[in-house]
Every structure is written in C-alpha cells, then in structure tokens.
Amino acid sequence: MSYAQVSVAADVSPTTVAGLASGGRATVLRGTAEKLMAVRSTNEVTQGNVSSVGAVRRIRALYALGHYQYQIAELSGLSRDCVSDLAAGQWAALSVDRDRAVRRTYDQLAMTVGTSWKTRRWAERQGWVPPLAWDDDTIDDPKAFPQTDAIAPTYTEGANVVDRFLMGESVILDAAGRRQAIQHLMEWTEMPLEQVAERMEMTGSAVQRTWERLKSESRKAGRPMRRRVYVSLQDKNMTRHEMESAA
C-alpha cells in the first residue's frame, strides 16, 4: 500500500503516514495511532502502485499453460510490451488498474490450456510454473514458493469434473470446483488435513480457511456441516440383517 492509500484507509494525513514510516516521528496522537492500527493489510488497494510480484507470477503461469502473449494482452487491455516486461520481471511495481487487469485475465485463462507450444517450452526453460503450482492465498506473497512438482492437467473440459478429480483423473478445477472437492474430502472422508492439502495442491492453512468458510455458509443456510466419523458396523457385532437395515 502506498502512503496515500494508507492515508485514505486510516483517514489521516499522508504527511503523518510518511513521517511515521520513515521513523522521523517518535510520538503520535492516540487517535491517530488507533486509526492507523485499524488498517489491515487485507484492505483492498484502490490507488497508487502495488508490488508486481502477483502480476509477474500470474502472467508467467499463463505462459506455462501455453497462452499467447498477444492473447493475454488483448484480454487484459494491456500492451504486449507491458505483458512482456512483466513476464521478464522488469517492473518492481505497477498501477492498481494494471494489476486488476492481470488478475481478471488470469481468472479467465487459468483453467484452460493454451495452444502455443513455443510459449509453454519457453516457460519450461525459464522454470515458470502453471497456476496449479500456486496457492491462490499466497501467490502475491513474495516469501511464498510454488509447488514445483505440480503436474500440468491433461483434461480441462467435460461433465462431472469434480467427480473425475476425486476419482484420480488429472483435471483442472475452477474455484467452485475446488470448494466442492474440499467439502467432499473434509466432510465425507477421514483423510487428515495434510493429505487433503496435498491432494488439492494447496497449503493446509488455505484448505482449513476454505473449510471454515464452507461450514459458516452451511450454518447460515440451516444445514450444519461437520466432519463425519465412520464406525464399522462389524465392530458393533451386528447381524447381517441388522447391517442391511442400517444401510
């Protein structure tokens, strides 16, 4: 966030923000401090420049899928030079509007495989990874690393995509599909959180956050959701007839 953005979010003077950030002020009014402390890093940035880390990773991931540079440029509204410079990591920061344009394009293309084998080969030589190697919650974090063992999916379309994924087929899941898969694995299997995260190619914390959101939404809808515990009917010394009735 720029000084101006922090200033707007906290409703304090930009000069005050700059002075505190540079260490030039030893004290500050309690009211000003409370306003600044109320600003969260998750607040949406609406003006100024932002780090290019997320944009660079998203464009490189689209290259890894084989999407053409001109296609990314056309969909995003950015120039081809801009897309090329970002992919090359030549920009340390970019405007909020450009960052949003890259995000929109990434959301449109991240679940489909492109047709440019040259772009895909170039990305492979550079060590760039596809979208599935990145966790949506950490792709913008400079300290995050991709899961380099992520395998590029071979199937991206068709019916029952989530069911096919759960059966072990290599498919790409969109955001809704990932939520559905996480719900099934967390609610209807005894798979530990770590294994679910590995299966979804996500971090454990990201899976846990998604699961908590799903449970919260289900409670609001009047359909409480929880992890199921399986007990073998054979362990209960039930007769075959009793087991059939229970089933």
Rank of each mutant, 00 (worst) to 15 (best):
9 A>W: 06
135 D>Q: 00
23 G>P: 01
230 Y>E: 03
69 Q>K: 07
194 E>P: 04
118 K>W: 13
130 P>I: 08
167 M>Q: 08
121 R>Q: 09
181 A>Y: 01
206 A>Q: 09
106 Y>L: 08
203 T>L: 03
109 L>T: 00
34 E>P: 15
26 A>R: 08
92 A>M: 04
7 S>F: 11
227 R>N: 06
11 D>G: 10
130 P>T: 03
200 M>P: 07
42 T>N: 11
55 A>V: 13
232 S>L: 11
105 T>H: 02
97 D>Y: 13
227 R>S: 05
151 I>V: 09
57 R>L: 07
186 M>N: 07
62 L>A: 00
234 Q>G: 13
219 R>C: 15
188 W>M: 12
90 Q>T: 03
194 E>R: 04
54 G>R: 01
203 T>W: 05
230 Y>K: 06
33 A>V: 10
124 E>R: 12
36 L>R: 00
65 L>G: 03
49 N>W: 04
62 L>K: 02
118 K>R: 13
179 R>H: 15
211 W>S: 01
50 V>W: 13
15 T>Y: 11
6 V>H: 00
238 M>E: 08
178 R>M: 12
88 A>T: 12
180 Q>K: 14
8 V>E: 04
56 V>D: 07
211 W>E: 05
211 W>D: 02
91 W>S: 10
143 K>I: 06
197 A>K: 09
240 R>N: 14
226 R>H: 00
26 A>Q: 15
46 T>W: 11
59 I>D: 12
137 D>N: 12
164 R>Q: 03
153 P>K: 12
80 R>Q: 09
129 V>L: 03
221 A>M: 11
225 M>G: 11
240 R>L: 06
129 V>Y: 01
48 G>L: 11
128 W>D: 03
94 L>E: 03
14 P>K: 05
34 E>W: 11
138 T>L: 02
106 Y>A: 06
191 M>P: 09
195 Q>L: 11
196 V>Q: 04
84 S>T: 12
80 R>L: 12
196 V>I: 03
7 S>C: 09
68 Y>Q: 06
84 S>G: 12
34 E>K: 14
182 I>R: 08
179 R>A: 10
